[in-house]
Amino acid sequence: MNAAHRAFAPLAAGLAQIGACGRFLLHVLGAVPRSLRYLRETVRQVFFVGAMSLVIIMTCGMFVGAVLGLQLYDVLSRFGSAAMSGTVVALALYRELGPVVTALLFAGRAGTSITAEVGLMRATDQLDAMEMMAVDPLAYVIAPRFLAGVIAMPLLACIFNALAILGAHLVAVSWLGLDNGTFWSNMTASVDLWTDVVNGVWKSVAFGAVVTLIATFQGYTTPPTSEGVAYATTRTVVFSSIVVLALDFVMTAFLM
């Protein structure tokens, strides 16, 4: 009885966390209209979570594209279909790798800094101080970061994809000698704007919402200690990664 209780305790705690996070989401969504008063905060946050993530997103995009070009050219050559390299790179990127890899990088780069920042605000009573100055921290601190994530993630994913295509082109065409016209014409023949590009954008909108929700929730509810903030930051990366990959599966199943 006691052992069973102990075994279920983490499960119950996990469910309670999910429930609390869901309630938090409702509060944040409720605060979004009020946060429009602090539009400047949202702009500032788009800069911090979006523009400041550009370097890592662009570098990684370039390398992911290059390695995809290399691998796919090699593999497809065995089937005499090297001409399809560009197509497969583009499809893999737009549908899966672009949104997912960007979301994972975003969780590590921007999610952690959101958690640490909000957590420290909690620990040093800054959130309480705002409440006392009749400023709702959900509207002033949380909602702008949430909105910034939803806005920045799809843009980052597009930038990631564009650089990855460039990287793949560099490897497949400039290095391995695939014909330039073949690379592009096969791609444009098979890649569809709506089912491939736009569905990928929807995915990254959802990922942006999920990652920033987790990051702000972890920061907002962190125990006000340095250890608490440290654990909250770790949890942001772990939970974001799991939820992004699980949600990716669900969305793929529904969008296909």
């Binding site: 009573d125 800054q126 309480d128 101080a129 705002m130």
Partner: peptide, 8 residues
Amino acid sequence: FQNSALLT
């Protein structure tokens, strides 16, 4: 506030 709680 007891610990000032300035916005850093």
